[in-house]
């Protein structure tokens, strides 16, 4: 159980984390989502006692991280953004050191180290210098370190960064398994990862709370719901009239290009109206040339939610508005053009 209340971190005049509050129940996998610079790592650094908050409270498994740091830290395993490994040690030496640091009793140390190496698939690397390991293996060594001492809570900052697709699947499976016994908080900007692994997702932007819900509910809750994209030949007015017999549409939903009229229709209540739309257009003598439904996925919701935030304080950050123009979600009419603020890291899996 982790309680975070009004957590704030100020760097100069800039809020890296701004009055953030949330709770993580035991046995849940909690996803921490936000674009670059949203404050994910800063929040995690404060939760693990590495950074001191400017204001606010953090309670980890009943211990206040500021007041009883050692008791609280004993219950946390932390994998920071960069694995905190010593290049001049071998994997085994390093993990043995971590085990002692985390107060694993002397008798159990060797077996604990061995067990974690097995779990992360790094037994073969046991006697290699960490300096010589590839990035993915360093990441796994860092992960093994976080598991030592069997902490109740695992805090993982972008645990799959630097891994190859096969390893990503393995690590996700591992996280899912760990989630059965531990409380896990992981940060990511890979949306599919979060929606696949996490029970709940917390979205933050510019250090502020944006949304928190289960991935399914977030997807459904997006303004878009389902969107139907239709393209038909014919006059704009005819198409509009035909569509109006089936659903509510405005002229603004339509675009015309070389005699083909395309419409993007918000479908209420997730109905299936494809048949009726097709029939209506056929009756109006406007042959349908293309039709597809587009469900709002977490990606859209994410962009939608963080976009609104960004408009509120664009000057807040030296945001390079990379013109990664994504397929606009259904709510195009209310929102100005979307800017892909988020680094579109595709899930290679």
């Amino acid at each position: 159980m982790i309680e975070v209340k009004n957590l704030t971190k100020k760097y100069g005049d800039h809020y890296a984390v701004d009055h953030l509050s949330f709770q993580v129940e035991d046995g849940q996998i909690y996803g921490f989502l936000g674009p670059n610079g949203a404050g994910k790592s800063t929040t995690m650094n404060m939760m693990t006692g590495y950074l001191a908050p400017t204001a606010g409270m953090i309670k980890v498994n009943g211990f206040d991280i500021m007041e009883e740091p050692e008791a609280a830290k004993r219950t946390i395993g932390y994998l920071p953004e960069l694995p905190p490994v010593y290049p001049d040690m071998t994997v085994r030496e390093y993990l043995a050191f971590c085990a002692e640091l985390k107060r694993v009793p002397k008798k159990e140390r060797l077996s604990a180290v061995k067990e974690k190496m097995m779990e992360l698939g790094i037994e073969d690397m046991a006697n290699r210098l960490i300096r010589n390991l590839s990035k993915g293996y360093k990441q796994r060594v860092g992960f093994a370190q976080a598991l030592l001492g069997d902490p109740q809570t695992l805090i993982l900052d972008e645990p799959t960064v630097g891994l190859d697709p096969k390893q990503i699947l393995e690590i996700r499976e591992l996280i899912r398994n760990l989630g059965k016994k531990h409380t896990v908080i992981l940060s990511s900007h890979i949306l599919s990862e979060v929606s696949e692994v996490c029970d709940r997702v917390l979205i933050i932007n510019h250090g502020r709370f944006v949304a928190c819900d289960s991935p399914d509910r977030l997807e459904m809750g997006g303004k878009g719901g389902t969107t139907l994209l239709v393209a038909a030949e014919g006059k704009r007015a005819d198409v509009l009239a035909a569509l109006r017999t089936v659903v509510q549409v405005t002229d603004g939903d339509l675009t015309e290009d070389q005699g083909v009229v395309s419409a993007s229709i918000d479908v209420p209540d997730r109905q299936d109206i494809r048949g009726r739309v097709s029939a209506a257009l056929f009756a109006a003598n406007c042959p349908v040339v293309e039709m597809r439904t587009k469900k709002a996925n977490l990606e859209d919701v994410f962009l939608e939610l963080t976009e609104g935030e960004e408009q509120a304080d664009q000057d807040d950050q030296e945001q390079t508005d990379s013109e990664a123009e994504q397929e606009s979600p259904a709510s195009d009419k209310e929102e100005p053009k979307l800017h892909g603020e988020e680094e579109q890291k595709e899930d290679q899996a």
């Binding site: 008791a71 830290k73 920071p80 960069l82 640091l101 985390k102 107060r103």
Partner: peptide, 13 residues
């Protein structure tokens, strides 16, 4: 090396 993150988040003062 950022290993201070390991030391400072471990249960030692």
């Amino acid at each position: 090396l950022k290993t201070d993150q390991l030391l400072l988040t471990a249960p030692v003062s």
